[in-house]
Amino acid sequence: MAQGAPPTYQDAINNPEKSFNPGSGAVVGQPGYPPNSDPATVVVYPSAGYAESPQPTQQVYNTGYVNPNYATEPTTVVDTMPIVAMSETPQGAQPDHGAEGFTTVGSFSDLSVRRIFIRKVFITLGLQLLFTFGIVCVFTLIDSVKEFVQYNPGLYYAAYAVFLVMYFVLVCSVTAARKHPYNLIMLILLTIALTYMVGTISSFYDIYAVLMGLAITVGVCLTVILFSMQTKFDFTKCGGLIFILLMVLVLYGFLTIFTWHYYWYVQVVYGALGALVFTLFLAFDVQLVMGGRKYELSPEEYIFGSLVLYIDIIYIFLFILAIFGGSSRS
């Protein structure tokens, strides 16, 4: 075989580890090989028994020799390792909300979980308000019921005691607020007790004042709820300010005990201040329920969410009713 000539097919089968450089006559693996360092693709010849034209399978450095009989472009085999994106919370896992009902933003970022939570809260709240305002209308419009509740104050104080017990249990005990169905039973008892109290208070007011108070309450609450959902302002950061306003309201309330009999406008100012404070509370609590703010309620706290929104709306109604004043026994 002439020097520099390509090997025969039989030589390639018998000596697969050797190949020849037509430019220098050097054999692969001998000293002086390779003649240059330019990268290129060469063919790795098949092992014995392969009868068809071999297909190149890998990329290697230039040996200075490419068999002209194999014109097919080589296929480069790339060995890659999968890149795994690391995250703090595995996909599909629920975040830990801890023992408390209040969490920081992002505690339930799953939109489906948030929608279910919001739906539960507002359905429960709607049923509470329908029951309460329906009983208020009964206590105000039916004279026999009005006289009964007005001349039996013991039932009012009993309802007040039930309300306080249920309220503090649901607010102070996370276990009680999450344990179904006991949390629902306690919420129903609280709603009945507060409804009786509100109905009794409304019975001492003129029917037109009560209806006007209901209409204004509905308008104010719907406006505040829609505004709180859409605004970028975060009311959950204003807890300290709202608490200070609440303390001012409490102190002013003690003042009205001794002065409202002499100055009618004291009661009006008290009602306006109370309506303002609990309107801010309503905006604060709506954003806690909706989530996406600095603080939000965890998904397990739908009973607590319904409770705080319900109490906010009831107090707004009572303070608006106090603005009209003119309470009269009938």
Rank of each mutant, 00 (worst) to 15 (best):
Y9R: 15
T236L: 00
V165M: 01
P299I: 11
T256S: 03
Y151S: 14
L280P: 12
V28S: 06
I225R: 00
N183M: 10
E296F: 07
I192T: 03
Q150I: 08
F163M: 12
F131T: 11
I142E: 13
G291W: 13
L214A: 02
V248W: 14
N67K: 08
P299T: 13
S47K: 10
I314H: 05
G92L: 00
G305I: 11
K237A: 15
Y61M: 02
L297G: 02
M290N: 08
N69Q: 13
V43D: 01
I135F: 14
V105T: 12
N62Q: 02
A51H: 15
H261Q: 11
S173H: 04
A159S: 15
Q150E: 07
I201V: 13
M212N: 01
F108K: 12
L222Y: 07
V121S: 05
P56Y: 10
A85Y: 10
T231G: 09
S306F: 10
I207Y: 00
I313M: 10
V136M: 06
I116R: 09
P90T: 01
Y61C: 02
F227S: 06
Q10L: 15
L184W: 04
D285G: 13
V43W: 04
R114H: 09
A215L: 03
F319G: 05
G101M: 00
P6D: 03
G154M: 14
P46I: 03
M186G: 09
T279P: 14
P74L: 01
F20E: 01
F233P: 15
D206A: 00
K18Y: 06
E296V: 10
I83S: 05
S330H: 07
Y157C: 08
E296C: 09
I201W: 03
S202K: 03
G213Q: 00
G325T: 00
S228D: 04
Q91E: 00
A215H: 01
V162P: 08
L321H: 04
F168Y: 08
V308Q: 02
P35Q: 00
V145L: 09
G126V: 02
W264T: 11
G92F: 05
A99T: 09
Y160A: 14
L129R: 05
P7V: 08
G4A: 07
G32T: 00
R114P: 10
C238S: 04
Y33L: 01
P7K: 13
T41E: 04
L318R: 05
M81L: 11
S228Q: 06
S47C: 07
F258C: 09
G240N: 12
G32P: 06
S203F: 04
T89L: 06
